[in-house]
Simulated scan of single mutants.
Amino acid sequence: MSEIVTALAGAGPLAAGWALHSMWTWRRLDASRRDPLSGLPTRAAFERHATRALARGPHVVLLIDLDDFKALNDTFGHAAGDEAIRATAASLNEVLAYCKGSVVARLGGDEFAAVVPVVIPAAVPRLLNGLHSMVTAPFAYQGQSLNVGASLGACLTRDLPVVSLSLALGRADEAMYAAKRNGGGWCLADGSAPVRLARSGRRGRAAGQGAA
């Protein structure tokens, strides 16, 4: 009996060491799957999680591209652009925190993506309005209030002939560019046809308060 107690006591530090090592390894893996600027998952991680999510039921697939982002960088510097990326990520997280099971990511540059479970399809326009309003809201940077515009493209997976992340992203991409051509806002893809412009929001611009 004493030998068993001694063995368990000796195993304690070893087990604790392995637990710490496992935690450290998990954190490194998690960090490698996240964009360091926005803190959101990267494209590869998004595709894995989003594919699993779509298999569980109807979703809306979103692509978000910031408008006037280059103008923001050129006028206020790349640090301001970085702050716009962080602010966009925070806005997406804030809105989608109320949609359990959502997956959001930064695909690269000023482009973001998300998949959101759909319970009531008729509520999707309200979701798109809310996302557009939050993303284009002013953010603080070095004592100034800046903002950028955004173009959102959306696709309801229930409208697709086959539920596929790549197909949904393709439809959302078409819708996003339709919104961009219309001056920003959001556009909902038809799914069975190219694109139906559902509604366009007002386009924001990169500017400080009182700028000409």
Rank of each mutant, 00 (worst) to 15 (best):
His49Pro: 06
Ala178Cys: 10
Ala140Phe: 12
Thr88Ala: 08
Thr75Glu: 02
Asp82Thr: 07
Met1Arg: 15
Trp24Val: 14
Glu94Gln: 14
Ala123Met: 00
Asp82Gly: 02
Met134Tyr: 06
Gly109Tyr: 11
Cys155Val: 06
Ala45Thr: 13
Glu174Cys: 11
Gly17Cys: 05
Asp65Cys: 02
Glu83Trp: 07
Asp35Ala: 12
Val104Ser: 12
Arg196Val: 13
Ala50Glu: 05
Ser2Val: 08
Ala16Pro: 14
Leu62Glu: 01
Phe76Tyr: 07
Pro125Ser: 08
Gly170Trp: 15
Pro121Asn: 01
Lys70Trp: 06
Ala137Cys: 05
Cys155Arg: 13
Val115Ile: 10
Pro121Leu: 02
Ala44Lys: 08
Val118His: 04
Arg171Asn: 11
Ser91Cys: 13
Leu107Asn: 15
Ala105Thr: 09
Cys155Thr: 04
Ala31Met: 08
Leu167Tyr: 10
Asp65Thr: 07
Met23Lys: 12
Ala189Val: 02
Asp30Gln: 09
Asp35Gln: 13
Lys70Pro: 10
Arg196Asp: 14
Ser151Gln: 02
Ala7Ile: 04
Ser91Gln: 06
Ala45Asn: 12
Asp110Gln: 10
Ser38Thr: 09
Leu152His: 02
Ala84Phe: 03
Glu3Trp: 14
Pro58Arg: 06
Ala123Gln: 00
Phe112Gly: 04
Leu167Ala: 13
Ala19Arg: 07
Ile4Asp: 14
Leu96Gly: 03
Glu94Pro: 10
Arg34Trp: 08
Ala84Cys: 04
Ala207Pro: 13
Ala55Asp: 15
Ala154Phe: 00
Ala105Gly: 07
Lys180Met: 06
Thr6Cys: 12
Gly153Ile: 01
Met23Ile: 11
Gly183Cys: 06
Tyr141Gln: 03
Gly12Ile: 06
Leu92Thr: 04
Asn182Pro: 15
Gln142Cys: 07
Leu146Cys: 12
Thr157Gly: 09
Gly185Cys: 00
Ala172Leu: 02
Gln144Leu: 08
Gly210Trp: 04
Gly143Cys: 03
Ala114Asn: 05
Ala44Ser: 08
Asn147Thr: 09
Trp186Ile: 01
Ile4Ser: 11
Gly39Val: 10
Val162His: 15
Leu63His: 13
Met1Ser: 14
Gly143Thr: 05
Leu20Met: 13
Ala105His: 02
Ser22Thr: 05
Leu152Ala: 01
Pro117Asn: 09
